[in-house]
Write a protein that binds this DNA or RNA. Sequence first.
DNA 1: TCGCCTATTGAAAAACTTTTACAATAAGGA
DNA 2: TCCTTATTGTAAAAGTTTTTCAATAGGCGA
Lengths: 143, 143
Amino acid sequence: MDWQKLLTQAGYRISKPRKQVMQLLESTQTPQTALAIYEKLKAQGERASLVSVYRTLELFASLGLISMVYEPEGSLGYLPASAGHHHYIVCQVCHRAVEFNGTEDLDGLVHQVESQTLFAVKDHLLQFFGVCPKCQNKSKESA
Amino acid sequence: MDWQKLLTQAGYRISKPRKQVMQLLESTQTPQTALAIYEKLKAQGERASLVSVYRTLELFASLGLISMVYEPEGSLGYLPASAGHHHYIVCQVCHRAVEFNGTEDLDGLVHQVESQTLFAVKDHLLQFFGVCPKCQNKSKESA
DNA sequence: TCGCCTATTGAAAAACTTTTACAATAAGGA
DNA sequence: TCCTTATTGTAAAAGTTTTTCAATAGGCGA
């Protein structure tokens, strides 16, 4: 669904900062931190405040409109959420994030962990880091 | 291997704060944040500074003596590292962390992700959250 | 379209976390 | 025990996230 409709239906307004943040996330190829979003908007001449960026990201995340991934250095980046699964592999070179579908294998792992630890699994944190095809080729060329 | 021997062999000294931090981590059942370690040491009358706690944790982690887990609220906790694998499931109620062995299933997932995304997988972030057996029983009793 | 209500914003400050600088201290080999 | 220097503690800085509150603007109803 359109994010603006979803926001409206949930009782939120379509404000300028919210439009700007979503537009920036949608136009970017890599996950962006709150500060990076703020600085890129500023560089574009927009004057959304950093506080609003934080608030907007929190709202969008709570509504499932955006996903969060850990960058290779540990900071938290945001990117538009797609419909289904939300597991990402992040390129350690160019930071590009790509979704992968690992539901089935993960289900197996969840069951194994539950029987092994007797915990009831409620949630998980799963993310891969690696080198994307483009960056693999670049390093081959320069070698 | 004994952590003190390992430190010495790597050219580091066995200082008071390092002893205190390791002792505290070894005596605790749950992962501890830097601040929590500092405050618990202070409560015990030890006078290690917060700066030293940070430095010590960084050193221990770089030597593989301790592992890091994300707490349910998102903060980073430390706990002594065991020999082999280092994946944890953390109880959302009592914060206890238990290791699990998911190497095989994870290998399968890694291969699937590589063929699906064409990335070369270098590293990963895997952690589960749930409710431990004890806390499951407690909630049953109170229900 | 206009006006009103109030959700939302921006600025400033506060709270919190982590890092840096540097003189004083103490670990451990000679 | 002495000497060298790794390590510490204090203080300050840097960085990040949250809170406060008056001003603004989104969007519904008239």
